[in-house]
Design a protein around this nucleic acid. Structure first.
Length: 560
RNA sequence: GCGCCCGUAGCUCAACCGGACAGAGCGGCGGUCUUCUAAACCGCAGGCUGCAGGUUCGAGUCCUGCCGGGCGCGCCA
């Protein structure tokens, strides 16, 4: 419809002496229904160009406008010079029929056809269970990936991790110390600083070791299968490996609960093994963007406007995260993706420009790389913010959260707000009042429609699939149709903006419009022709709710 | 000190690349179940969109400066 009207407006402008080059008519849905179904501000924008009052331009434009009376029933000028259009009932019913016909494909668009995107998300190193903090990343990334799929992209979901490095070494040491205590229960203990005062740990437990219960579980498992055979094994040998394996399995199962399945896991180590990172250092050096100082290799980030240069390779010979990150992104570019999306928490925002600079310096097209930054989740319990630390085990895991409020609520909660606003998660509220969560409102609307269809079957009402949709004249009926027609655009915009919450917001409008229709119009028991038409409308609403919830990765139950 | 994000109803948040009278949910107050699900619906109250300027036909949205909060600014990731 927008394309059609844009075409008509341009045609009308041509008869008025032409529009400025590159002028593209814009439309908006008026907030006030009295202003019609779609409004153009063309006259306001062109007033200066024509050197006339906006309303004058609007009148001329409206007069010159030649539109199909079946699609547009009224063209009005209002306010400072808006041109308001009203859709014809025949067009609306045609479109409604199209929704039912498209079914589960309704809302899929082809803007990304034949293009490929990779979304990298979660990417937590396997040092412990996923926490609520990872939840926002996981759900956001998965849903952004869904949005890409709905616009026609081929999508790869990738998890990037690193099992070398200090964190993992400490993890191995933590497990080994617990293991030794299982082997020799009389082993001495000492106290280190825990989350709330000192805690007793076995001798040999690192000062900054991991205190979570899962460490002991892993150690117990090793003791049960290997007995005392591992007492002389290195911490970063079987202990670290066992920990990594067990923890990764848990992470994966947590993600599965959320409906997330990764396509690929990328181990940072491969960038070392292939020598990729050293090639990059040499390439940068060749462009005079890397140099040696104080035993370290530096990246000349001052050449890109930063105040200081940054270290690429430490004096120990170990690269900083920046170097493999550059290599990783080059790798993704070489794999031929058209869009490369990284989902990062706000704390990583500063690292991104260095990586892009590096990739760009190597001659790659960095326009394809894009970062979705989300702000932190503040966990609130008993009205107080909860400080979380994986190491100190003062976290709430994603599994805990799902146990308490359910998978659907968990997903919806992380998706209902814009990524770049802080998310306050009140645990008490989520637990006690979870039935008041907006996600239930959407699901309830869906369940009600399913209930109507069941009921129809029970009473033996066979509705006519070729129902005369022109019978849908009630105010709540037409407004529901109009809302339903907005779905493809809602998906498209959410995808473009990488903002899943737009879909959630839209679905609320759908549920509201349906519920109003439901309250005002009965289906079963009405005249069969009208009932059939309404059944079509309800079916269309169900399709939109189901498809929309599917974009968000949330179930659409038939009963509640 | 510098950089990024945020500041909208009592609380949590929307507002579609600048549009018409800033909207929801929760909480508060008052109504509505013999009907396809009351996990619902209807109504009322509640706002100088942090403050001060600027840009223009028009600003919550863009620019500048303040104020307040978050996150960064490491040979950690």
């Amino acid at each position: 419809m927008r394309d059609y009207l844009a075409d008509r407006i341009l045609a009308a402008l041509a008869t008025l002496g032409g529009a400025p080059d590159g002028f593209v008519p814009e439309f908006q849905q008026p907030a006030n229904p009295e202003h019609g179904d779609l409004a153009s501000n063309a006259a306001l924008q062109l007033a200066r160009h024509f050197r006339r009052a906006p309303r004058q331009v609007a009148e001329d434009l409206a007069r010159a406008l030649d539109v199909d009376a079946r699609r547009i029933t009224s063209v009005e000028i209002a306010g400072p010079g808006f041109i308001n259009f009203r859709f014809g009932p025949a067009w609306l019913t045609d479109e409604l029929a199209r929704i039912v016909q498209a079914g589960e494909h309704y809302g899929r668009t082809g803007s990304g056809t034949d293009r490929r995107a990779i979304v990298e998300f979660v990417s937590a190193n396997p040092t412990g269970p996923l926490t609520v903090g990872h939840g926002r990343n996981a759900v956001l990334g998965d849903t952004v990936a869904n949005l890409f799929e709905w616009t026609g992209y081929g999508v790869t979901r990738e998890y990037y991790f690193n099992d070398a490095g200090r964190q993992m070494r400490v993890l191995g040491e933590s497990v080994k110390a617990r293991y030794l205590a299982f082997v020799d229960p009389s082993r001495g203990t000492r106290e280190i600083e825990g989350p709330s005062g000192p805690v007793a740990v076995p001798d040999g437990f690192p000062e900054d070791g991991y205190l979570g219960d899962y460490i002991g579980e892993i150690a117990r498992g090793l003791h049960e299968t290997h007995g005392a055979d591992l007492v002389d094994a290195p911490a970063d040998g079987p202990f670290k490996e066992a920990a990594e394996q067990v923890i990764f399995r848990e992470i994966e199962s947590t993600l599965h609960r959320l409906g997330i399945r990764m396509d690929t896991y990328f181990n940072e180590r491969t960038l070392y093994e292939t020598g990729r990172i050293w090639e990059i250092v040499e390439a940068l050096r060749g462009r005079d963007l890397a140099y040696e100082k104080d035993g370290a290799t530096w990246f000349r980030t001052t050449a890109f406007g930063k105040e200081d240069d940054t270290v690429l390779v430490k004096s120990t010979g170990e690269p900083t995260y920046r170097l493999p990150d550059i290599g990783y992104h080059v790798d993704k570019l070489e794999r031929g993706f058209d869009r490369i999306i990284d989902i990062f928490g706000a704390d990583h925002i500063a690292t991104y420009p260095d990586v892009v600079s590096g990739v760009k310096a190597l001659g790659h097209d960095t326009d394809r790389i894009e970062v979705v930054i989300y702000q932190f989740v503040t966990l609130v319990r008993g009205g107080e913010p909860v400080k979380m630390s994986t190491r100190k085990a003062t976290y709430v895991t994603l599994d805990d959260l799902m146990d308490e409020v359910g998978e659907d609520v968990t997903r919806f909660f992380f998706l209902m707000r814009s990524p770049n606003t802080h998310l306050e998660f009140d645990l008490d509220l989520a637990r006690e009042a979870s039935e008041k969560n907006p996600v239930f409102y959407l699901q309830y609307a869906h369940a009600r429609i399913a209930s109507i269809l069941r009921k129809a079957e029970e009473v033996g009402f066979a509705f006519d699939p070729d129902a005369d949709l022109a019978l849908l004249t009630h105010e709540t009926e037409t407004s529901l149709v109009k809302v339903l027609l907005g779905f493809p655009e809602a998906v498209e915009r959410a995808a473009e903006a990488r903002e899943p919450h737009r879909v959630a917001t839209y679905l609320r409008d759908v549920a509201v419009a349906f519920t109003q229709f439901y309250g005002a119009c009965r289906i079963i028991g009405e005249d069969p022709k009208l009932a059939s038409a309404r059944m079509q409308l309800a079916t269309a609403a169900r399709i939109v709710l189901r498809n929309g919830l599917s974009v968000l990765g949330i179930s659409a139950p038939d009963r509640m």
